[in-house]
Design a protein around this nucleic acid. Structure first.
Lengths: 223, 223
DNA sequence: CCCATATACGACTATTAGTCGTAATCATTG
DNA sequence: CAATGATTACGACTAATAGTCGTATATGGG
């Protein structure tokens, strides 16, 4: 219980995810301020990363933008990279959404996965600089990398569920192994994101669109 | 003619690419020593990156391993990242190879592309740390990024040629646009490399194998 | 043998991520 | 409401290191 209430409360991640900070009422003023500060730091950081590129943003830039002292940053994030680690965690939430959508049974698997691609691309699509920063952070420090790893492999499991559902529904070629398909999906996504982040040319959305079509072509039932 | 003979002679890149340094005879002792030094720095750097990971290797580590003074490093490479930029340049050479192979007409397109995947994966496959470093360098400094960009887009053009040949030979679905296919190929490769570099699990070769199969499935003639 | 030029060198600077002790702020309790 | 203990803010400080620069050395040509 090292950080039971100290600095990082678990609920904050949720708070960071949602646009309009909810349930801030249910805490004392202190926790509320803490939450506000963390969210402010988080958003300022992402904003700056997107504008200038990760390496060209110092921690001090962030704290200044958020109007707090420099040390305060490290009360809320283990390191500069960690900000992006948190963002990855948020992305994982979107994958969960896809599973839920699948289970509801009201959407074709095609549209569930299609939507998933677009949703996850939303954030990094804000700017090539931000996308590069995100990917870089995946590769940078060991701590963050492990965080990402867990997210990716958890995400893959969820996608595999969706794929399995797709196979039952005869939308996806049933000869394919669902785990491999899930992996391919992630690869397609990451590859697209990576190349787009280098070119930056038209919006990421367009690239994702192409990429998904290609992916689906290799996956859909064909006989 | 800024650096006509000063420091970076063009031939050095070739020298770096080939395992057994050839044509070192044809220069004066001075150029020979310079070439040797550059190659030594390059290899030591890659070795260390592969062993410890890019961020955990300082320039001084490299120069010590190569047994030269620290400043000397910057005589041969613009920056630490630049080492990896040079490596990317070398990779491009392998793509050229594929075009040549295609033109010779003695190989199926499938095997040309398959071979290309494996060949390009060879170097980064030496260690996940090295692969991560490579990818990171693509994203890091502006200078290197532009270098990479050129390489990637040049590479894509070459692949597009190969694809076009494949369409003429009725190996590849002719309804697909060759430029897009080339892009998809790069995306598949990079995505695979990226995810593998995070997991490191079995050899990259195996991942590449899977990935190529998947790719081919979406590309090959099906009717 | 001497000069011009290419290369080697390492002390130096500038930048910045992350630490730490201290001060301010808040919640709680009698 | 005052006192107390916990949480959070703060910025001066340290450590690490990429990249610069002026100087020294080696080479090849004339």
């Amino acid at each position: 219980m090292a950080n039971s209430h100290k600095y990082h409360s678990a609920a904050l991640i949720e708070a960071l995810a949602s646009e309009n900070l909810p349930h801030l009422q249910s805490m004392g003023r202190r926790q509320r301020r803490a939450a506000e500060t963390r969210v402010r730091l988080f958003r300022c950081a992402l904003q700056l990363f997107a504008e200038r590129g990760f390496p060209n943003v110092t921690v001090e830039d962030i704290t200044e933008a958020a109007d707090v002292g420099k040390g305060t940053f490290f009360n809320y994030f283990e390191s500069k990279d960690h900000v992006l680690g948190v963002m990855a965690e948020i992305q994982l939430g979107k994958v969960r959404e896809a599973v839920t959508l699948t289970e509801s049974g009201k959407q074709t698997i095609h549209s569930v996965l299609h939507r998933l691609f677009l949703r996850v691309a939303e954030e990094p699509g804000r700017s090539p600089d931000l996308a590069r920063a995100l990917i870089s952070s995946f590769l940078a420090s060991k701590r963050v990398r492990h965080l990402i790893d867990r997210n990716l492999s958890e995400g893959r499991k969820m996608v595999a569920q969706v794929v399995a559902a797709g196979q039952k529904r005869r939308e996806i070629d049933s000869r394919l192994e669902k785990k491999k398909v899930a992996l391919q999906l992630q690869q397609a996504f990451m590859g697209t994101l990576l190349l787009w982040s280098l070119e930056g040319q038209p919006a990421l959305e367009a690239w994702i669109e192409e990429s998904f079509q290609h992916f689906w072509r290799a996956i859909a039932i064909s006989s």
